[in-house]
């Protein structure tokens, strides 16, 4: 690949029809695209998710990012949220999910890092199909993994909102990190569980297929989730890697010269 990749992104959020406050936050910079779904009383959830996205916005400001920095940065954010809660008793116990994509330099070429703590999700939409890139850190997902719950039961289980990893935990959670190279034409969806709780993967895919501009796609997704019930705050960030016009040359593997 030559030159800088062209990335376009759009984001939308809505409080929904049931909740009094929107405790979701998102961030879109030139290299970081993330959603944070906060939890805690007295609007502390909004504080926690706000701290998380503000912290993530710092990534990339000091130059090229490496995957390991993403991991360390997220672990540091856990400490920042704990420290903020310690200064303000009303915010005691606040926490947040944090999930998204970061452009990094890896082995000399641009790669994506998908990161996740909690039950917000990143999907890749490419070639007409949706693929969930993150694994939910939720109690029901772990029960499904252990064979104690079917996926159908998980969708309605009362424990489905219980996350097993979150920022703001006394012991820093280990973020899931997943590295892969950029591919032109890829579209990503980063979203809070308010979106995936209302729309299944097929519905998400059909909305993503209907809108070319990522801002329209994000707005349309959030609107659809609110119409479908809007039982939670809903946030969507859509990220496109826009194809360049020159196809990349990629020849056959050359036989190694033997001296």
């Amino acid at each position: 690949m030559t030159g800088e990749p062209t990335i376009r992104a759009g984001a939308a959020t809505d409080v929904g029809l049931v909740r009094a406050a929107n405790e979701d936050n998102y961030v879109v910079t030139s290299s970081v695209f993330a959603v944070a779904d906060g939890m805690g009383g007295h609007a502390a959830g909004d504080v926690a998710s706000g701290l998380a996205v503000a912290g993530l916005a710092q990534l990339g400001l000091a130059g090229v990012v490496r995957p390991e920095e993403v991991r360390r940065h997220i672990v540091r954010l856990n400490g920042d949220i704990l420290a903020a809660a310690a200064r303000n008793p009303e915010q005691w116990g606040m926490g947040t999910t944090v999930t998204g994509l970061c452009l990094v330099d890896f082995a000399g070429s641009p790669h994506w890092v998908v990161f996740n703590v909690g039950d917000s999700r990143v999907y890749r939409y490419a070639g007409g199909s949706m693929e969930q890139l993150t694994v939910d850190h939720s109690e029901v997902n772990e029960l499904v993994a252990a064979g104690k719950l079917s996926p159908a039961e998980a969708a309605t289980d009362p424990r489905r909102n219980v996350v097993t990893r979150a920022l703001g935990s006394p012991t820093a959670p280990e973020p899931d990190i997943f590295v892969f190279p950029l591919a032109e034409g890829d579209r990503f969806l980063v979203c809070s569980d308010g979106l995936t709780g209302e729309l299944d993967d097929g519905a998400l895919a059909s909305v993503l297929a209907s809108w070319d501009d990522p801002r329209d796609a994000a707005a349309s997704l959030v609107r659809a989730a609110v119409v479908a019930g809007g039982r939670d705050n809903v946030t969507a960030v859509v990220v496109d890697h826009v194809p360049a016009h020159t196809p990349p040359a990629d020849d056959e593997t050359a036989p190694r010269k033997v001296s």
Binding site: A107, F180, T253, A254
Partner: peptide, 23 residues
Amino acid sequence: VGSDQSVRPHVVRLRSPDGDISR
């Protein structure tokens, strides 16, 4: 990476100016 894997591996693109690393 094939789309058939239930757990996707990390995928690392290596620079190979001489092309002696395979796809």
